[in-house]
């Protein structure tokens, strides 16, 4: 069964599971079948945290990631644990500051300033939303306005403006990347 597979990885507390849940909700609204799975440590902050999306026609045979199309790494904790799932079809999006030495090989690796951008917008907690904007623009998996609408619906209203800015900044980052 043909699948599109995305992994959000980093450290517990970075909002990776939430980001995956938001993207999954947007994809479901478009009538896509999505399987989302998570792995995290029994601590409230820190440790490896990851969430995978497997997008398929109909229910996926195997709902967990096997060959990633997109790998997002937002923290050192996410480094090295997904290398066996990378292939020439993969695109790696790593935070330029938090992941100084991202995986490189016969696939595309982009080191982008997600955390720095979030900080410049006033809150490092929206690093995940910046990255989501970039992922959306690069992958063209769903219309950005639909995804942003889900971001706003699934996060506290007091962060609406910040999330809008973060999402837009993430999208802009993708535009500047050569295809």
């Amino acid at each position: 069964m043909a699948t599109t597979e995305i992994r959000f990885s980093g450290s517990g507390g970075q909002g990776l599971l939430l980001s995956a849940r938001i993207l999954a909700a947007a994809l479901a609204l478009q009538g896509r079948n999505v399987a989302q799975s998570n792995a995290y440590e029994p601590v409230s902050r820190g440790g490896l945290s990851r969430s995978d999306l497997v997008i398929s026609e109909g229910e996926a045979d195997f709902p967990l990631a096997r060959r990633l199309d997109y790998l997002l790494i937002l923290d050192l904790a996410g480094l090295g644990v997904s290398d066996h799932l990378l292939s020439p079809r993969s695109v790696v999006l790593a935070d330029a500051e938090l992941v100084p030495d991202p995986p490189r090989g016969d696939f595309r690796t982009l080191a982008l300033p997600f955390a720095e951008t979030a900080r410049s917008l006033g809150n490092p907690r929206v690093t995940n939303i910046v990255a989501l904007g970039t992922l959306c623009a690069l992958s063209e998996l769903c219309p950005p306005e639909l995804l942003l609408e889900r971001v706003l619906a699934m996060t506290p209203a007091k962060f609406d403006r910040l999330n809008r800015d973060a999402f837009a900044a993430g999208q802009a980052m993708a535009v500047h990347e050569p295809a």
């Binding site: 849940r21 999954a24 479901a28 896509r32 079948n33 999505v34 399987a35 989302q36 799975s37 998570n38 229910e59 996926a60 709902p63 967990l64």
Partner: peptide
Amino acid sequence: EVIGHLTET
């Protein structure tokens, strides 16, 4: 745990 924490459409 995988099925318990798995989200599917």
